[in-house]
């Protein structure tokens, strides 16, 4: 007997599909931001659910910091090819060379440099809506952001002046030069994402699972040792079984000690976790309002 009830995952999925279709129906040139990370992997599955058997009515865009886990880029290219969808890549490296982005002295992470690179890419292709995998449970400023989040001609977010968002009626109206960031996963939590990956049997990059890696202790976190991040004298360096919970610039993505070998293990681990997902991101630790400040400038 069918009870005509949706589980919470099914309800979240139905909502996200509705949002994806609304974007395609209301905008001229949407784009979906795809990094190869777990949230954007779910976004691709939701896009399949929203538009198959047709092709995606938008290309995929990756803003590449150049500071990557190599596994992530392999995964990104493989997944885009497997789906037969178009992938556009714009790099921070290139934006630096062209003077679009400028490095801050002393800052090794390139997360901040993604912002001008992204804005330049949106302008280059005249994209008017960018679909992102951000979630409201990630961070306090995101908790207040609309699903359809308006950006002015400078790409900026004005948190004190957001459009009211009622029911599932999204106001998609913008003027030329402005754009919309749209977040279909707004109401998903980290745990929902993993439960969805499990339910949908989605492939994810291997670095999400426990693996042996050389890490260095810095600011209370284990950061991966890489050509971009070398231990300083007297820093503690260990080789541990670790995995990543969230993936950013390799120089600021903390690893957690873990024995999780599969998605079910990860779910068990997260359910018991006592630190938030972004607790492992050094870029969010700069100040209480670090994310709000970056978002105002146009960060995703």
């Amino acid at each position: 007997m069918d009870t005509y009830a949706l589980s919470h995952l099914e309800a979240l999925e139905a909502e996200a599909i509705h949002i994806l279709r609304e974007v395609v129906a209301e905008f001229q040139r949407p784009v979906l931001l795809f990094s190869g990370g777990k949230d954007s992997i779910c976004m691709l599955r939701l896009a399949e659910k929203a538009f198959r058997p047709a092709r995606f009515p938008f290309p995929l865009l990756h803003i590449d910091t150049g500071h990557n886990f190599p596994e992530l880029l392999d995964f990104r290219d493989h997944r885009a090819a497997e789906l037969g969808e178009k992938l556009i890549v714009r790099t921070v490296e290139d934006a630096l060379a062209k003077g679009i982005a400028r490095a801050t002295p002393g800052e090794s992470s390139r997360n901040r440099l993604q912002t001008p690179t992204l804005l330049a890419a949106l302008e280059e292709f005249k994209f008017d809506a960018a679909l992102g995998g951000a979630r409201r449970d990630e961070e306090k400023a995101r908790a207040k952001e609309r699903v359809f989040s308006f950006r002015d001609a400078f790409g900026q977010w004005d948190p004190k002046n957001q459009r009211p968002e009622l029911w599932n009626l999204y106001n998609a109206r913008i003027n030329p030069g402005e754009h919309m960031r749209v977040f279909p996963l707004s109401n998903w939590t980290e745990l929902d994402i993993w439960q969805y990956i499990l339910r949908e049997k989605l492939d994810i990059p291997s670095i999400y699972f426990a693996h042996r890696r050389e890490v260095v202790r810095r600011d209370g976190q284990w950061l991966p040792v890489s050509p971009l991040l070398q231990p300083k004298p007297r820093e503690e360096v260990r080789t541990l079984d670790v995995r990543v919970r969230t993936i950013g610039d390799i120089s600021c993505t903390g690893c957690i000690e873990s024995a999780a070998r599969n998605v079910a293990d990860i779910i068990t681990e997260i359910a018991a976790a006592r630190v938030t997902e972004r607790g492992s991101r050094a870029d969010d630790k700069r100040s209480e309002t670090a994310m709000e400040d970056r978002k105002r400038e146009g960060y995703f």
């Binding site: 919470h8 995952l9 309800a11």
Partner: peptide, 13 residues
Amino acid sequence: MNTTTANDTSELL
């Protein structure tokens, strides 16, 4: 299952 975890058949309020 951990006590703070919804399983994937739980309702949304």
